[in-house]
Amino acid sequence: MIEVLKNAIKTMVKETFEGPSGEGSMFTESRPNSGFFGTLEQLSANEASIAVNGSTIAAHADHTRFYLWGTNIILKDGKQPEMNWGESWQINLVDEKRWNQIQEGLRHEYVTFLERVDAIEWNESLSKEALASLAHSAYHLGAVRQMLKVIKS
């Protein structure tokens, strides 16, 4: 059962970040680059800095990175690190260098998450953390994709 749960989580997280595998989609669009990475890569730093309803895509991306970082610490150490959630939303204006750093940081935490999922000793608490991270990331992907419609119109 644990192997089945682990593989399901990894499949869904991969769809969230990489987009569908080509065999259809569970919840993202069924086209290439519809996951987090493909969505962010199509944006310039200026576009990622445009505020939509008080927040920017850059802030959503970095907040998702921050959440994944926290999850990765929990999966490794079994306890939540000290986290300042307000700080994770303070990004507004980014230049190309900072925008690339945010995307690279998000990719790093994603890869680390997949590695942790393979390495942990599964229990109910860690299962909830992994599933919460999936839900949280999928929520922010949806928010970013809706913001993108406003920015690109």
Score class of each variant (00 low, 15 high):
Thr64Gly: 08
Asn53His: 14
Thr71Phe: 03
Ile151Ala: 03
Leu93Ser: 08
Ile120Asp: 01
Ala138Thr: 07
Trp85Met: 08
Leu75Cys: 01
Ala143Thr: 09
Ser133Asp: 08
His60Gln: 15
Met12Val: 05
Lys10Glu: 13
Ala135Pro: 05
Ala59Lys: 13
Arg145Cys: 05
Ala119His: 02
Asn33Tyr: 04
Asn100Arg: 13
Glu15Tyr: 01
Lys10Ser: 07
Phe17Met: 05
Gln146Ile: 01
Arg65Val: 00
Glu18Met: 08
Gly24Phe: 13
Glu104Leu: 05
Gln101Met: 12
Phe37Ala: 02
Asn53Gln: 14
Pro20Phe: 12
His140Asp: 03
Glu3Pro: 01
Leu75Ala: 05
Val4Thr: 15
Gln90Asn: 15
Ala59Asn: 11
Gln42Phe: 01
Pro81Lys: 08
Glu29Ser: 14
Leu114Met: 05
Met12Pro: 01
Ser133Gln: 11
Arg107Gly: 00
Lys149Asn: 09
Gly105Met: 02
Lys152Cys: 03
Val150Asn: 05
Gln146Thr: 12
Tyr67Thr: 14
Lys97Tyr: 10
Phe66Cys: 11
Pro81His: 10
Glu129Val: 04
Ser49Ile: 00
Val52Gly: 10
Lys128Ala: 04
Ala61Pro: 04
Met12Cys: 11
Val117Pro: 04
Leu126Pro: 02
Gly22Ala: 04
Val13Lys: 11
Asp95Arg: 06
Val144Gly: 13
Phe17Trp: 12
Asp77Val: 02
Asp118Phe: 08
Glu29His: 14
Arg116Thr: 00
Ser30Pro: 03
Tyr139Gln: 14
Glu29Asn: 15
Glu109Phe: 02
Lys79Phe: 09
Ile73Gln: 15
Ile102Ser: 10
Phe113Met: 06
Met12Ile: 06
Glu87Asn: 10
Lys76Gln: 13
Gly54Ala: 10
Glu47Gly: 00
Asn7Asp: 12
Phe66Thr: 08
Ser44Leu: 06
Trp99Lys: 10
Arg98Asn: 06
Tyr139Ser: 03
Ala48Asn: 12
Met26Glu: 03
Val144Met: 13
Tyr67Met: 07
